[in-house]
Simulated scan of single mutants.
Amino acid sequence: MRKYKAVVSIEVEVEIDEAMFTETFMEEFRESFYRFNDVQRHVEHIAQLEARGLLQDFTEGYGPIKDMGIKARTVDWDTEVEVSP
């Protein structure tokens, strides 16, 4: 049996309405989900959800993403495969 290592890079474009990420929202999100202290961490999380196919019209933690001004789309991807010795 042969082993392979694959590195998949996915570029995701994320748009958000930063005004929706109020301190109240951030505190409630931290209490129930992840300890994100800034909008950039949310953008990273949203991009990762999109890359994994998990960003839905209603996404846990954000609710209806349109209401939060969230849009994300995959714009490019690349895969590199190495054969293990």
Score class of each variant (00 low, 15 high):
residue 10 I to C: 06
residue 52 R to C: 01
residue 37 N to T: 09
residue 18 E to V: 09
residue 53 G to R: 10
residue 5 K to W: 13
residue 75 V to H: 00
residue 67 D to W: 06
residue 55 L to C: 10
residue 17 D to W: 01
residue 66 K to D: 15
residue 40 Q to L: 15
residue 17 D to Q: 07
residue 41 R to N: 12
residue 10 I to Y: 01
residue 18 E to P: 05
residue 4 Y to D: 05
residue 56 Q to V: 00
residue 40 Q to E: 14
residue 15 E to S: 12
residue 82 E to W: 11
residue 83 V to G: 10
residue 50 E to D: 08
residue 5 K to Y: 15
residue 56 Q to E: 15
residue 71 K to V: 06
residue 15 E to C: 04
residue 79 T to D: 05
residue 38 D to V: 04
residue 19 A to K: 13
residue 82 E to D: 13
residue 28 E to Q: 13
residue 3 K to Y: 13
residue 42 H to C: 00
residue 53 G to W: 14
residue 32 S to V: 08
residue 84 S to N: 07
residue 64 P to F: 03
residue 85 P to Y: 11
residue 76 D to C: 03
residue 1 M to T: 05
residue 82 E to C: 08
residue 58 F to Q: 09
residue 46 I to F: 06
residue 83 V to R: 13
residue 34 Y to W: 12
residue 51 A to R: 07
residue 3 K to T: 09
residue 2 R to T: 08
residue 43 V to P: 01
residue 13 E to D: 14
residue 53 G to F: 12
residue 14 V to Q: 02
residue 3 K to L: 14
residue 63 G to V: 12
residue 46 I to G: 03
residue 6 A to M: 11
residue 60 E to F: 09
residue 25 F to Y: 15
residue 74 T to G: 00
residue 28 E to I: 06
residue 3 K to E: 09
residue 17 D to C: 10
residue 63 G to P: 02
residue 60 E to M: 13
residue 19 A to H: 09
residue 32 S to I: 05
residue 35 R to H: 10
residue 64 P to G: 04
residue 16 I to T: 05
residue 14 V to H: 02
residue 42 H to W: 02
residue 42 H to T: 02
residue 39 V to R: 03
residue 37 N to F: 11
residue 84 S to H: 06
residue 47 A to N: 02
residue 77 W to V: 00
residue 74 T to H: 01
residue 11 E to I: 05
residue 21 F to L: 07
residue 7 V to D: 14
residue 29 F to T: 03
residue 2 R to F: 08
residue 85 P to L: 13
residue 35 R to G: 12
residue 76 D to E: 13
residue 73 R to G: 14
residue 69 G to S: 10
residue 82 E to P: 03
residue 51 A to D: 04
residue 79 T to A: 13
residue 2 R to D: 08
residue 28 E to S: 14
residue 52 R to P: 00
residue 18 E to F: 00
residue 29 F to C: 00
residue 26 M to E: 05
residue 85 P to H: 08
residue 69 G to I: 13
residue 43 V to R: 15
residue 19 A to N: 10
residue 19 A to F: 05
residue 62 Y to P: 00
residue 29 F to W: 11
residue 26 M to C: 03
residue 28 E to A: 14
residue 49 L to A: 05
residue 33 F to S: 10
residue 57 D to Q: 15
residue 11 E to P: 00
residue 61 G to Q: 04
residue 52 R to A: 08
residue 33 F to G: 01
residue 62 Y to E: 08
residue 31 E to V: 03
residue 20 M to T: 02
residue 65 I to D: 12
residue 76 D to H: 11
residue 21 F to G: 01
residue 11 E to F: 07
residue 39 V to K: 04
residue 80 E to W: 09
residue 49 L to R: 01
residue 16 I to P: 00
residue 82 E to M: 11
residue 8 V to T: 15
residue 66 K to C: 11
residue 49 L to P: 06
residue 83 V to N: 06
residue 41 R to W: 01
residue 76 D to L: 05
residue 61 G to M: 10
residue 17 D to Y: 03
residue 75 V to Y: 02
residue 46 I to C: 02
residue 26 M to V: 07
residue 10 I to V: 15
residue 9 S to K: 14
residue 51 A to M: 04
residue 2 R to W: 10
residue 68 M to Y: 06
residue 52 R to G: 00
residue 64 P to M: 03
residue 46 I to Y: 07
residue 51 A to Y: 04
residue 27 E to I: 12
residue 56 Q to I: 04
